Simulated assay, not measured.
Amino acid sequence: MNTDAAAETPPNGRTRTIGLVFPPAGDHYTETQMEFIGRVAEAAQQHDYDVLLTTGREVDDQPFQRMLTGHRVDGLILMEIRLEDARATHLIELGFPFVTIGQSGLEKTWWVDMDWVALGRACVRHLADLGHRRIAFVNRSEEFFQAGYESAHRGLEGFNQGVAELGLTGRGYHCGDDEAEGEACLERILLEEPATTALVTLNEASLGGVYRGLTRAGRVVPRDFSVVGLVSGPWVETVTPPLTAADEPIDEISRVAVELMLERLDSPGASPRHVVLRSLISIRSSTGSCPSGPDSEF
Rank of each mutant, 00 (worst) to 15 (best):
T201I: 04
P194V: 04
H153D: 00
S232Q: 00
T215N: 08
F98Q: 01
Y211E: 10
L186M: 15
F225K: 04
V59G: 05
L20W: 10
L127A: 08
I283N: 03
I101Y: 08
A217T: 11
S151D: 12
L191W: 08
T215D: 10
E248V: 02
F98N: 01
R82G: 04
S289R: 15
F298Q: 14
K108C: 01
S141H: 03
H47M: 09
V21P: 01
Q62D: 10
A205E: 10
V73S: 10
E263D: 15
Y211A: 11
G288W: 05
C175I: 09
C290E: 08
C290T: 10
P194N: 02
T109Y: 02
E107S: 11
R134G: 07
L53W: 07
S151P: 03
A128R: 06
R72V: 12
G182M: 14
S226Y: 06
S151E: 09
I283S: 08
Q45K: 15
R273Q: 13
F137T: 06
C185D: 09
P272T: 13
T109K: 02
G162M: 07
V231P: 00
G38Q: 10
E193V: 11
A198F: 11
P242R: 01
S285G: 15
G158Y: 02
V256T: 14
A246E: 00
Q103G: 05
R171N: 08
R278H: 15
T3W: 14
V236G: 00
R16F: 13
D85N: 02
R125C: 02
Y173R: 03
G75M: 13
G95C: 10
H274G: 08
L230Y: 05
A5C: 09
R171P: 05
F22R: 10
E237M: 01
G172R: 07
E204L: 06
I281V: 14
D61P: 07
R121Q: 14
V256A: 05
V220Q: 12
V258P: 04
V200N: 05
D295Q: 10
A152H: 12
F145V: 14
Q33R: 09
H71T: 03
F145G: 07
E187G: 15
T215E: 13
D50F: 02
I18N: 08
R212F: 03
G102D: 06
L230V: 04
E8D: 14
A128H: 13
N160D: 11
Y29D: 13
I37A: 08
M1R: 12
G38S: 09
L186S: 11
P10T: 05
A136Q: 02
P222L: 06
R72N: 06
L94T: 09
A136P: 01
D27H: 09
V40L: 12
A88Y: 07
V99D: 05
L277F: 07
G155Y: 05
V99C: 09
E193L: 08
R72E: 07
Q62G: 01
A147P: 00
N139S: 02
C123W: 01
G162P: 00
D177W: 01
D50K: 02
V256M: 03
E259W: 06
A41P: 03
L130M: 11
A122Y: 03
M114T: 12
R134N: 13
D60N: 14
G208A: 13
C290R: 05
A86Y: 06
E165D: 15
K108I: 01
V221G: 03
Q65V: 10
A184M: 14
C290H: 06
C123M: 05
R125K: 13
A6D: 06
E93V: 00
L260D: 00
W116G: 04
